[in-house]
């Protein structure tokens, strides 16, 4: 096995508040270098149900497609969302002079391409008061079998042996975008200025200093844990393997993603007569179509697993509420930052 260690990450969706501090932390560090990066969010947060980012990414396919020639590439305006520019200098004459335009206008007009990476924030589905939604933070999964790597005809995509981080060699990349097509999570982006593809680097310069990646260390909701898959003492190991409360997003894509999610509980619905029921408002069906353990699990198995995780969470909560101790709850709370970053 050429990969000596694999870094992994767990997101607790019961702690995610959709604040996008992770997205901004990443943006201001890695993707505000040039105009060609403005549409990129290596770390993004999307409201589910929703179209996601890039738009409808779950329907765009990947290298597993039977016909790889038909995999579409997202259009920057329609697919990733226009990074609007504003006429600040016309409106706010901070250096003196006349203003020709008293109103701050985005360009192009957002109605031209009514989509952006977070366009359907907090929109959700359902009928009030049984509306529902949750937040899904997404980063490159640094997959064990990366489709981007497989797709690259120039072998410019590689996986580091010391941590399993997947990188694109910008010197070797020619911007063909097979990786963009290949990645079923659409977590590789094309930079039209630099004419190469770019993606999350898992803040490797920081990982090398044994510091967390920015999206984790800056996470105000404290929803993430990082660690190495083989570290059986780590909290990610316990969440994934011991307590088995963290699932992969779309394991059926068969890339073996290394980012895991604790599925979201939700407040119960109301019946037609306004009675509080005991069914969670986020349909299990929707969650089962998103999350699972392995690529060969079937739908029913996924449903069972999600229900099982909810039971574990509720049981452990109840246990602590009635004075008991729970290793799981201690991990989920993670009183100190050292509990979240074990690298």
């Amino acid at each position: 096995m050429a990969i000596m260690r694999q870094i992994q990450m767990v997101f607790d969706l019961n702690k995610c508040i959709g604040c996008h501090t992770c997205a901004m932390a990443c943006k201001t560090m890695w993707t505000d270098r040039d105009a060609g990066q403005m549409h990129m969010y290596w770390m993004n947060v999307e409201t589910r149900p929703g179209t996601g980012y890039p738009k409808d990414w779950e329907n765009l396919g990947g290298w597993f497609n039977a016909d790889r020639n038909t995999i579409p590439l997202p259009h920057i305006h329609e697919g990733y969302g226009t990074p609007w520019e504003y006429n600040y200098k016309e409106v706010l004459k901070t250096e003196g002079g006349d203003t020709p335009a008293p109103k701050l206008i985005p360009s192009p007009d957002p109605s031209e391409y009514p989509y952006a990476s977070n366009w359907d924030e907090d929109v959700g589905k359902g009928t009030f008061p049984n509306s529902y939604y949750f937040y899904l933070p997404r980063i490159c999964n640094h997959c064990t079998d990366p489709a981007c790597l497989e797709a690259c005809p120039r072998q410019a995509v590689y996986k580091r042996s010391e941590d399993g981080i997947v990188l694109i060699d910008p010197k070797r990349c020619r911007g063909y975008r097979y990786c963009v097509k290949g990645c079923p999570y659409k977590k590789v982006y094309y930079n039209p200025e630099e004419k190469i593809s770019q993606k999350c680097v898992f803040c490797y310069p920081r990982i090398e200093e044994r510091k967390g990646n920015f999206c984790s260390t800056q996470c105000a909701g404290r929803i993430s844990w990082i660690g190495y898959a083989d570290d059986t003492k780590s909290n990610i190991y316990k969440l994934i393997n011991t307590w088995k409360v963290a699932l992969r997003l779309h394991p059926e894509y068969k890339t073996e993603p290394n980012v895991f999610y604790i599925p979201p509980l939700s407040p119960p619905t109301y019946s037609f007569t306004s009675k509080l029921t005991d069914s969670p408002r986020i349909p299990i069906d929707m969650l089962a179509k998103m999350f699972g353990d392995t690529h060969d699990q079937n739908y029913d198995q996924r449903v069972t697993r999600i229900k099982q995780i909810f039971d574990i969470l509720q049981n452990e909560r109840n246990k602590v509420a009635s004075g008991g101790n729970s290793e799981l709850i201690d991990i989920l709370i993670s009183r100190s930052e050292a509990d979240r970053f074990q690298i």
């Binding site: 201001t28 990476s117 366009w119």
Partner: peptide
């Protein structure tokens, strides 16, 4: 940067 993460 904030407006781009809304509807502009």
């Amino acid at each position: 940067y904030q407006l781009r993460l809304q509807r502009g």
